[in-house]
Design a protein around this nucleic acid. Structure first.
Ligand SMILES: NC(=O)c1ccc[n+]([C@@H]2O[C@H](COP(=O)([O-])OP(=O)(O)OC[C@H]3O[C@@H](n4cnc5c(N)ncnc54)[C@H](O)[C@@H]3O)[C@@H](O)[C@H]2O)c1
Ligand SMILES: NC(=O)c1ccc[n+]([C@@H]2O[C@H](COP(=O)([O-])OP(=O)(O)OC[C@H]3O[C@@H](n4cnc5c(N)ncnc54)[C@H](O)[C@@H]3O)[C@@H](O)[C@H]2O)c1
Lengths: 215, 215
DNA sequence: ATGGTATTGATAATTTTTTGACAAAACCTT
DNA sequence: AAGGTTTTGTCAAAAAATTATCAATACCAT
């Protein structure tokens, strides 16, 4: 219930799902949502939903549930959607450009402040609101405006090196899109967002299904 | 130890990390890896590594560890990297195009067999090896070659509708990149790979750090 | 206003996951 | 060839996460 307590990791990973859902509900004009409704919509149990929301600064009301406006507000606050985070993307390849041109980030509190590459031919080009800068200028650029999050969108072979550059520049949170585990000091948080891993998870599920259907 | 047993979900999510690591080791010419070495490299405990690998069809050897070639082989097999999966991408926008042009998927057993969009202007364009086709032709195209996996790369507002088209076309596994929970029948597996959620996870970690440093 | 009822918040039970511990295995050195 | 040592595989313990349960709450219909 207190914001200073540590929220368990599995809960943190579900919070964005609650936020998406409650935003949809509000768009539909729904003002109250019970734990059961939320659970059904997201494939959870109502008990899990209530446990999870007990970590938020919010109380539900008997017979009505949780007020959607209030729920959205606390979720946005916990997930940092209310304050603007400054983000740099390293790697202006296919994926880096797609991210830079993706408008939805700014609406959720993530402003792309820089896009860096080592390829001279790319430098100066604009993608979204970001101009490609030389990777050699990373340190000086990051010095100008405090950068919260670095996104690694370079080939796996360069991922560790880029991670170290980000750490040296003082970045405390890294989103790693490369298919490679990166080592960082313990004061830096890394989250991997690997599409390949998700595909492999699906491939495992498909393999299991085939086995089961064979008997 | 038997391939027919159900491997726990947390284990499945770690397997791709082991695969990445063991492939790197092999490239370096390393032939044996102990659970401790693997644990150190990936930020786990050696106990967890041994537990996880006990689900694979493989045995380590005292004083040497696991043979990297064998480990890679069983991981590839479990994660479906040995057989080719047929994949379609729905949505030829920034993200869909980046995926279509991403060469690494084919090397891991995922062949992009189709790229679909509803925008007439995009139809016929080539991205990677895939030509953009009309979403209206999804059913007939999927009929021609058995599609294993569908990737949703359309705006959130269209995600549910696209999911239903994929299900109707007989697709059994869906990778959802849209920031929206989709509902599918229970025989279909969905994995969400949402970059936004990963960023929000980082934002939470940053918020916590700030709190702690304030005392 | 009152009573029936749906839904919360809290606690307890259960299940799952992670970690610890150690005998057995088999390597390597001498 | 034997002994010391490292590392596995397994089992047990601990920790964490999920689910079930239920008294308390406060809504809503009458
Ligand atoms: N494209 C996808 O759909 C996709 C999906 C999942 C993961 N990924 C991963 O994301 C990463 C980028 O993928 P991509 O498709 O954009 O690759 P890409 O080859 O299109 O782009 C990589 C970019 O990084 C730049 N680069 C290389 N080394 C650098 C360095 N040391 N410093 C700065 N810039 C450097 C290159 O010049 C290039 O512009 C890869 O690790 C890839 O595996 C990509
Ligand atoms: N671009 C990113 O970096 C990024 C990152 C994370 C998540 N996403 C998510 O991925 C999805 C796609 O993002 P994007 O940046 O590629 O968007 P985009 O607007 O560039 O592309 C979306 C494409 O989908 C097509 N489309 C829309 N409705 C369709 C339908 N019913 N059937 C077929 N095609 C349809 C559009 O014509 C368009 O070409 C979004 O849900 C977005 O939130 C994108």
């Amino acid at each position: 219930m207190h914001s200073s307590e540590q929220i368990p990791h599995p809960v943190i990973r579900r919070l964005p799902k609650y936020l998406v859902h409650v935003q949809e509900l509000r768009e539909e004009g729904v003002e109250w949502a019970s734990s059961q409704e939320i659970a059904d919509a997201l494939g959870l149990t109502s008990s899990t939903v209530r446990q999870d929301l007990s970590h938020m600064e919010l109380r539900g009301i008997s017979k009505k549930g949780y007020e959607t406006s209030q729920l959205e507000a606390v979720l946005r606050q916990v997930l940092g959607a209310d304050i603007m985070h400054h983000v740099v993307i390293i790697g202006a390849g296919h994926l880096g450009r797609a991210l830079a041109e993706h408008g939805a980030f700014a609406r959720r509190g993530f402003e792309i402040c820089g896009l860096f590459d080592r390829d001279e031919d790319l430098i100066g080009k604009m993608y979204g609101n970001a101009e490609v800068m030389s990777i050699d200028d990373l340190a000086t650029q990051v010095g100008k405006v405090k950068i919260d999050i670095g996104i690694i969108a370079v080939p796996s072979s360069a991922a560790q090196q880029v991670a170290e550059m980000l750490v040296d520049a003082g970045v405390k949170a890294i989103l790693n899109l490369a298919y490679k585990h990166i080592q960082v000091p313990s004061h830096v948080t890394v989250v991997d967002a690997r599409i390949m891993e998700s595909l492999q998870e699906l491939a495992y599920a498909l393999g299991k299904k085939k086995e089961v259907s064979r008997g």
